Computed example of a mutant assay.
Amino acid sequence: MDLRQTNYKQNLSAIQEFILVGYQAYPTLLFAVFLATYAAILLGNGLIVVVTTMDPALRTPMYFFLRSLSGLEMCYTSVTLPKMMANLMSGDRSISLPGCATQMFFLLFLGGTECFLLAVMAYDRYLAICLPLHYMTIMSQRVRVGMVVGSFIVSLPMQLWQIGIIFSLPFCGSNEIDHFFCDIPPVLSLACADLSTNELTVYVESILFVIIPFLLILASYVQISKTILCMPSATGRQKTFSTCSSHLTVVILFYGSAMIVYLRPKTPESVKVNKLLSLLYTIIIPLCNPLIYTLRNREVKAAFRKLLRKKKPLALGTGIIG
Rank of each mutant, 00 (worst) to 15 (best):
L97R: 13
L97Y: 14
G99V: 06
G99K: 03
T102V: 13
Q103S: 09
M104T: 12
F105R: 02
F106V: 08
L107H: 13
L108P: 06
L108C: 14
F109S: 05
F109A: 06
L110I: 02
G111R: 04
G112I: 00
G112K: 07
T113W: 08
E114T: 09
C115R: 03
C115M: 09
F116L: 13
F116Y: 14
L117M: 13
L117K: 01
V120K: 00
V120A: 15
V120M: 12
M121W: 06
M121L: 13
A122Q: 05
Y123R: 11
Y123W: 14
D124I: 13
D124Y: 09
R125A: 12
Y126H: 11
Y126G: 01
L127R: 14
A128Y: 06
I129M: 06
C130H: 05
C130W: 06
C130V: 15
L131D: 13
P132V: 11
P132F: 11
L133D: 15
L133H: 14
L133V: 07
H134E: 15
H134Y: 12
H134I: 11
H134C: 08
Y135E: 11
M136Q: 14
M136H: 15
T137I: 08
T137L: 10
I138W: 12
I138S: 10
S140F: 09
Q141L: 11
R142H: 11
R144M: 10
V145T: 07
G146T: 01
G146N: 02
M147Y: 11
M147S: 08
V148Q: 07
V148K: 06
V148E: 09
V148S: 08
G150F: 01
G150D: 02
F152M: 01
S155W: 04
S155Q: 04
M158V: 14
M158F: 14
M158R: 08
M158H: 11
L160Y: 07
L160D: 05
W161C: 11
Q162I: 12
I163S: 04
I163D: 05
G164I: 05
I165C: 08
I166P: 00
I166W: 10
I166R: 04
F167D: 10
L169V: 00
L169W: 00
F171E: 03
C172P: 00
C172D: 13
G173H: 00
S174K: 02
E176N: 12
E176T: 07
I177P: 03
I177Y: 06
I177T: 04
D178E: 12
D178F: 10
H179V: 00
H179E: 14
F180D: 05
F180E: 03
F181Q: 14
F181E: 14
C182G: 08
D183F: 12
D183C: 09
I184M: 13
I184G: 04
I184N: 06
P185A: 02
P186I: 03
P186T: 05
V187S: 05
L190K: 03
A191S: 05
C192N: 08
C192W: 01
A193C: 10
D194I: 04
D194M: 01
S196D: 12
T197L: 13
T197Q: 12
E199Q: 12
L200E: 12
L200A: 15
T201M: 14
T201V: 12
Y203V: 09
Y203K: 15
V204K: 10
S206H: 03
I207G: 05
L208S: 06
L208C: 13
L208F: 07
